[in-house]
Every structure is written in structure tokens, then in C-alpha cells.
């Protein structure tokens, strides 16, 4: 169920990118899509009532492996969030410069290129 909602979030983001006319809304769509994927990665490693993946000397390794959440997706998602931040920051920066040049955020009016 929660995976379906995750996919729904992804599709909402994709819809925002494809169908919105405003640059800011496109950026928001991108952020939503990015976070849907991040959420998905976290869900992969999730385990109900799991413990933090820190191995203590007093714990038994096999019992630990059965009850802890998977630390790998958490490491991955940190990197993915940082990358997403970089892309978003660059997008917003370019967006501000576009506003300086064109005086609008409407993509139907920003059409100097034929594409």
C-alpha cells in the first residue's frame, strides 16, 4: 500500500514537470519526484519494529542481523538528498537569472529557442 502511494507521489511530480507552465512549479514538481524516490529507497530498508543498525559488543550478531533495519539505503539516501539539493539549487539559480532576462516565469513566453 505504502509503495503505491510512493509511486503516486512520483507520478504527481512527473505531472508537475510535464504539464505546468510556471518555472517554479516545474521545479517543485522535480523536488516532489526526487523525494518520492528517496522515500522509496528508505522503504526498502525499513523493517517494522526494527532497531537502529548499530552493533553493540553485548549483542549477538545473528540476532542483530534479524532485527536491525538495513543501513545501506540510509547511506544511499543521504547521498541522493545532497545531489538533489545541488540540482535544485542550480535550477533555482538559473530560474532567477531567467527572470532577470525575460521578466516572467511563464514558459510559453520564454521561447527564444526553437527546440
Amino acid at each position: 500500500m505504502i509503495y503505491v502511494m510512493c509511486l503516486a507521489l512520483f507520478v504527481v511530480g512527473l505531472y508537475g514537470i510535464c504539464c505546468k507552465k510556471n518555472l517554479i512549479k516545474i521545479i517543485l514538481g522535480f523536488i516532489i519526484m526526487d523525494y518520492a524516490v528517496n522515500l522509496f529507497i528508505i522503504l526498502i530498508g525499513y523493517r517494522k519494529n526494527g532497531i537502529a543498525p548499530i552493533l553493540d559488543k553485548t549483542m549477538d550478531v545473528n540476532k542483530f542481523a534479524l532485527s536491525s533495519v538495513d543501513p545501506m539505503p540510509q547511506a544511499i539516501v543521504l547521498t541522493a538528498i545532497v545531489i538533489g539539493l545541488a540540482v535544485t539549487a542550480l535550477m533555482v539559480a538559473v530560474c532567477v537569472r531567467i527572470y532577470e532576462r525575460y521578466g516572467t516565469f511563464d514558459i510559453t513566453k520564454i521561447r527564444k529557442l526553437k527546440g
Partner: peptide
């Protein structure tokens, strides 16, 4: 310049979608 920024933004949106797809696919394989 105006055209360069417009091209860059367009490239960024397309490239961003592609990268998100790659990340999702990697997550599925994991």
C-alpha cells in the same frame, strides 16, 4: 545570456528526470 539560460534550464529538467529514473531503477535492483 537569455538563450543560454533557457537552454540550460531545459537541459536541466530533462537531465533531472533521467537521473531520477536511474536512481529509481538502481533502488529497484537493490
Amino acid at each position: 545570456e537569455a538563450e543560454e539560460l533557457e537552454a540550460s534550464f531545459k537541459y536541466m529538467v530533462m537531465g533531472g528526470i533521467a537521473s531520477t529514473f536511474i536512481l529509481l531503477a538502481v533502488a529497484i535492483l537493490y
